[in-house]
Design a protein around this nucleic acid. Sequence first.
DNA 1: AATGCGGGGGA
DNA 2: TCCCCAGCATT
Length: 346
Amino acid sequence: MKFSKTLINWYSINKRDLPWRKTTNPYYIWLSEIILQQTQVKQGLPYYDAFTAKYPTVFDLANANESAVLKLWQGLGYYSRARNLHATAKHIAFDLGGKFPNTYKDLLKLKGVGDYTASAIASICFNEVTAVVDGNVYRVLSRYFGISTAINSTPGAKEFKQLAQKLIDTKQPAEFNQAIMEFGATQCKPKNPDCDTCPFNSSCIALSKNTISELPVKIKAAKAKKKHFNFLVFISEDEKTIIEQRQGKGIWQNLYQFPLIETEKATNFKSFKSLIKDHELLTNQDFELLLYNKEAVVHKLSHQHLYTHFWIIKVDKLPINGINIENVRDFPVPILIGDFIERFNF
DNA sequence: AATGCGGGGGA
DNA sequence: TCCCCAGCATT
């Protein structure tokens, strides 16, 4: 039987019941696709529910402040997705009159929408015959056809896109695209795929050659760098603290945090106390210093391992306008800070 | 072509 | 530990 027929038949029997499968409204499909970038369904699902509940239309999302959007996104990671989501909502609502682009080519112009997402929306919402290639598709095709081209290389991206485009069912592009991703997610899994019950187990090249565990081939990423973060948790007599919005390029852009001092190495109490003695936020006043966590809290990101200490600094008065400590939970913060706020319980 | 960007979960 | 996840933007 044809690859696409077998696949779509498998999908009709095995597909999960997911909320974004009950609609072809491009706003909801777009929202789900952005949330699901580099994110498992299980992790993204509650965020999809929260966003559709709070922002039922693209106009609701467009009219929100960026901080409110980031707050709802808090904990999901890759925060540029949230910033681009909000910017694109404004573009669609205010420049395009709320009308979603309806071709692969035009969708690709949107901020935060690349080849995968443009293909997903174009096929699911508008029946355009354009194949999606995500991590699932790479895995399924590399195994079934025994392809060892690195999936995270330029030749690999091109080869797999062409192959997927050749295989897609031109009469049912939406079904095909969702089927191949679902198949990769639940049957042809990264570890311990269920080959015994697989409808392709008589024709899968990797299974016949016993190379399932070697495919897909991926060029290894560089190891994460270690960094040492020291957060200054000010507490004044009138129960205020200081948080700042992160600026610039790096991690957690536009999220909030306690004032940060990054050091080359881990510091001890004594040397840190002398280090901050002349800090601008202390303005030469007396302060009481307490180290909240003796053991560093290690927060692991894809490319950085953060060794973190929270320093409690009690002062009479803040030199700038702080925020009342009971309001600290209102701001979007990285999960590292959010966990501290919960545990510390101001 | 290479790098940066989160956080959670599986083995 | 290491790998992966309905990838994208920047350099």
